[in-house]
């Protein structure tokens, strides 16, 4: 079900837990599926002894991918026209990510209706990890 420009309002907001208690195995899953095998994300020996971090941390693209679920659950499948984020804090194993999207604008361009969203994903302490924006095509 896609959203309709007639019923959606600026300021409408939606929140969803998109990843819960992130395991190291999930980081391995993401590495294997994406082809990003950077040992920063999966190799405890390398990251603690060579890279100088306390433990492995999640691929930024895992957080962005999970955050995309909130957007597509709301706007419908295949409706996004833009989606962009900044990675503002690292995500560590054991964290739970909650994504929130808010309608910032509803507009018409060349006879097509669009909604612009702001997007923020926070960890279990409310610390933002991903912030960004998205645009989706709406039904009339």
């Amino acid at each position: 079900m896609a959203l309709s420009a007639a019923t959606l309002e600026v300021g409408a907001t939606r929140t969803e837990v998109v990843l819960e208690n992130i395991s190291r195995t999930r980081l391995v899953m993401y590495a294997g599926a994406s082809g990003d095998y950077n040992p920063l994300h999966t190799d405890e020996v390398y990251i603690t002894q060579v890279a100088g971090y306390p433990t492995v941390f999640a691929h930024g693209m895992l957080s962005m991918g999970a955050t995309g679920k909130l957007l597509t659950d709301w706007v419908g499948n295949g409706r996004l026209t833009k989606y962009g984020v900044r990675f503002v804090n690292q995500v560590w194993p054991g964290e739970t990510l909650t994504a929130t999207a808010t309608v910032e604008a509803i507009r018409e361009e060349g006879g097509v209706h669009y909604a612009d969203f702001s997007v923020t994903t926070v960890n279990q302490d409310g610390k933002p990890v991903v912030t960004g924006s998205a645009t989706a095509r709406l039904d009339a």
């Binding site: 002894q49 930024g60 996004l80």
Partner: peptide
Amino acid sequence: FGSASEPSGATIESTGRLHAEQHF
């Protein structure tokens, strides 16, 4: 450059490159 019997198998300068932003 990840670990095997040693913590790192190679010295590569830019292993610490991180993702700052992504837009589609």
